[in-house]
Amino acid sequence: MPPDHDLDDYVDPYEHGHRHGGPLRVGLGGPVGSGKTALAAALCRTLGTEYDLAVVTNDIYTTEDADFLRRNAILPDDRIEAVQTGCCPHTAIRDDITANLDAVELLEARHPGLELVFVESGGDNLTASFSYGLVDVQVFVVDVAGGDKVPRKGGPGVTASDLLVVNKTDLAPLVGADLDVMRRDSATVRGEKPTLLISLREDPAATEVAEWVRAQVRARRLQQA
């Protein structure tokens, strides 16, 4: 860089945090089969009467999750957008978020009063994370059946997500997973960031996660006020 250049010339004024107005965008990521879609459906059922909301799905087979949401979340078709990720679910939420931004903006244009948008990634691995150019906050969903070592293994999703959800606690005795170990390891790698151990089978309303989402909506409103 030439010495007479002001560093500010290189800073983009539209960086993360500068998007004003519009709905809270919540990313839901995590490995295949951990319960991302089930969680999205639960949150839509629980929060659908409180907020004007919509969902973007990134399933590898594009309509699979959208169909599941239609059946289970009582969400009308015009509130669900499915995007194709070119065999790279990870790229579509972090490195090139174009298709997801298109989908979010389409939903925002279609529903001007939108307050909440969930962007559900296609199932990926522990290194997956959302770009903050796409979402405001992100939830990473793992499950007990994947082994109680998962939180210790870390990765950006486990360590840096705004909320870590450990799903399927009801399976712990069946798969020999120690929930205390998972809780302790999560706290160690995540510091102050919250972790919730849940069972969507036992609590189909995802009560605790929904409460966390409500707090995020409130926080964003305060920030924007």
């Binding site: 995007v83 194709q84 990720t85 070119g86 790279c88 790229t91 579509a92 490195d95 090139d96 978020i97 174009t98 298709a99 298109d102």
Partner: peptide, 12 residues
């Protein structure tokens, strides 16, 4: 191809 313009999701 890494320019984030959405091309990665198109196979032509």
């Amino acid at each position: 191809s890494r320019l984030p313009a959405g091309g990665h999701a198109h196979s032509g």
